[in-house]
Amino acid sequence: MDTFLQQLINGITLGSIYALVALGYTMVYGILELINFAHGEVLMVGALVALTVIQGLTGWGWPAPLAVLVAVLAAMVVCMTLGLAIERVAYRPLRRAPKLAPLITAIGLSIVLQQVAALIWGRGYLSFPAVLPPVSVVWGGVIITAIQGAIIVLAALIMAGLLVLVQKTALGRAMRATAQNPAVAQLMGVNTDRIIAWTFVIGSGLAAVAGVMVAAYYGVGNYTMGFMLGLKAFTAAVLGGIGNLAGAMLGGLLLGVVEALGAGYIGDLTGDFFGSNYKDVFAFMVLIGVLVFHPNGLLGSRAREKV
């Protein structure tokens, strides 16, 4: 039972991060029907920027909490700018092109960003300073570390904020209207290009925070870290029903939990034939399973009507 609860906590932590990243995929898809495969790389850039800023600031003797705060803000500013630039340079010129063109551009962009990051930060693994005190709450046999608590709470707050933004504000209404029918949204006075840019900016901001979380959680950063995480988050978005915000959150959490439970139990279940390093397999098994029985994802609408 303790193993179960412990893995559940680990899974929710990981799942919160997946959810934040999945939201970026799903928002862009919802509005452009484009899979922004460079999204994982935006996360990586955010993580590495934060890593550098923290190292620099703590090196100058700044207190750790302040350094982290500045690092997160710096990562967000850099990633939002990057997201804005990606949309402007790589996707907007292809707005009316066949769907495959921006998809290939996205993959190309992802490679470019990785290689640029490799030039800036090198190809090695960079250690993320232990910024949060290694304290933890022990409850029964379950341990919740400070960093896990911070990730879960912060992710929940951000997601709640995003839901309010999308459901309750004029900007959110315009985003949903643009996603449903961009031509009519323009008739209402919506500058759809600006709304699309905002979507990239918001998604990239979420990716930046998620990047810092991942790097802080595992204690390392590397120029390839965005790839697998991006793929998992994309899986989460599809799992929940791509284009659906609540779906991305649900899919992310579910994927994290399944993966953690899988990692915790796979050894017992297979007589130690498979180890926890097979945990990645679970993510994709779940995806295949859901898509076989529910092709539009858990919360996806059955058919997107396009008037």
């Binding site: 949903r176 029918n181 919506v190």
Partner: peptide, 26 residues
């Protein structure tokens, strides 16, 4: 200059009130 488009073009997954508020977006 306002156009009520052919086929109505309501935002089907927005509520009625949200649709009306979209009308006043500008």
């Amino acid at each position: 200059l306002s156009l009520v488009p052919e086929g109505r073009g309501v935002f089907s997954r927005l509520s009625v009130e949200e649709n009306l508020l979209m009308g006043a977006y500008h």
